[in-house]
Simulated assay, not measured.
Amino acid sequence: MMLLTSPLLWLAAVPSLVHAYSALSDDTLKNLPRGGDDFDIHKGKILAPILRTRVSGTPGNAAVLKHFVDFFTNSLPEWKLEFHNSTSTTPTSNGKQIPFVNLIATRDPPGSQVGEVGRLTLVAHYDSKLTPKGFIGAIDSAAPCAMLLQTARSIDKALTKKWEAMAAEGTMDLDDQKGVQILLLDGEEAFKSWTHTDSLYGARALAEEWEFAFHPTASTYRTPLDSISLFVLLDLLGSKGSKIPSYFKTTHWAYKHLGAIETRLRKLGEFKSSPNYPVKVAKRKNKKPRGEPRFLTDADKPEDKIYFMGGAIEDDHLPFMARGVEILHMIPSSFPDVWHNLNDDGEHLDMDTVEDWTRLVTAFAAEWMELEGFFEAKKAERGEYVGKTEFEIP
Rank of each mutant, 00 (worst) to 15 (best):
G238R: 00
A143R: 04
K240D: 09
L268M: 06
S6T: 14
T160D: 12
E78N: 15
A380K: 15
L258N: 00
D356K: 08
N31P: 03
Y247M: 03
F271M: 15
T90W: 07
D70W: 02
L237W: 02
D304I: 09
A23N: 10
V123A: 02
T358L: 09
T73D: 10
T358D: 08
N102H: 00
H125W: 06
E367T: 09
L185D: 01
E390K: 15
A142K: 07
G35F: 02
S227L: 04
R119F: 01
L184E: 00
S246I: 11
T160R: 13
G238W: 04
N61T: 09
P289H: 03
L51D: 03
L200H: 04
A365N: 05
G310H: 02
F72W: 06
M2Y: 14
E355G: 02
Q113E: 09
T220H: 13
L342C: 06
E314H: 10
R382T: 14
P99H: 00
A105L: 02
G373M: 05
F135N: 07
D186E: 05
Y307L: 13
L318K: 10
D316H: 01
E347M: 10
N343E: 14
T89F: 00
K133G: 10
P224N: 08
D300L: 12
D298E: 08
S239L: 02
T131N: 14
T58I: 11
G137V: 12
A158I: 09
K288F: 04
G44N: 05
A146S: 15
S219N: 10
T223C: 08
D173I: 12
T195L: 04
M351L: 15
